[in-house]
Simulated assay, not measured.
Amino acid sequence: MNLGSLPTQRFDAVILDLDNTLVDSQEALVAAFGSWAREYRISPDQLTGRAGWRTRDIVDAAIEKPRRAEALALIDELELTTTEGITAIPGAVEALSALHEVAAVATSSRRPVALARLAAAGLEPPRVMVSGEDVERGKPEPDAFLLAARRLDADPARCLVVEDAPAGVEAAHRAGMSALALTTSTPSADLDAEAVVTDLSEVSFTVGRDGVSITAPGVTAG
Rank of each mutant, 00 (worst) to 15 (best):
L160G: 04
R151I: 07
A88H: 11
S25Q: 06
A120Q: 00
D155E: 09
L147K: 11
E84T: 14
L74P: 02
V161G: 01
A13C: 11
T55Q: 12
P156W: 01
V14W: 10
A73H: 13
L72A: 14
T8Q: 13
P187R: 10
R41V: 11
L80R: 14
D164C: 04
E64S: 13
K139W: 09
I58E: 08
R68V: 05
D17A: 07
A104C: 04
A216Q: 06
D143L: 08
W36Y: 11
A195I: 03
M1D: 12
E94P: 02
S201R: 14
E64A: 14
G122V: 10
G208T: 08
G91E: 04
G211C: 06
I89W: 06
V14S: 12
E124N: 11
G34A: 04
G138M: 04
P44C: 10
L200S: 06
P66Y: 05
T107P: 00
L16P: 02
P112E: 03
A116Q: 01
A106R: 00
A106V: 04
L72H: 12
G132Y: 13
G122N: 12
V169W: 06
R158G: 00
R50Y: 07
P66N: 08
L147A: 09
M129H: 05
T183A: 08
H173V: 00
E77Q: 15
E163H: 09
D192H: 13
L18Y: 10
T186V: 10
G91M: 06
I75H: 13
I63R: 13
A221C: 11
A32S: 15
L152F: 05
A73P: 09
G122R: 12
E27Q: 15
A121C: 06
E170W: 01
D19T: 11
E27A: 15
T21Q: 11
G52C: 05
P66S: 06
T82Y: 08
A51C: 00
A172P: 00
G176D: 09
I58N: 09
L180Q: 02
E39K: 14
D57Y: 13
E101C: 03
A69W: 01
R174L: 11
G208Y: 04
R67G: 03
H173L: 01
P44F: 10
P125K: 04
D143S: 09
S109Q: 08
A193M: 10
V207D: 02
V105H: 04
A189H: 13
K65R: 15
T183C: 05
T184F: 03
Q46L: 14
A149D: 07
R38L: 11
R137K: 13
V207H: 06
V93N: 07
A31V: 13
S131V: 01
R38Y: 01
A88T: 07
A88G: 12
S204Q: 15
P7K: 07
A157M: 04
T8P: 00
E124P: 02
V212T: 05
D134W: 02
V135H: 03
V130D: 01
A13I: 04
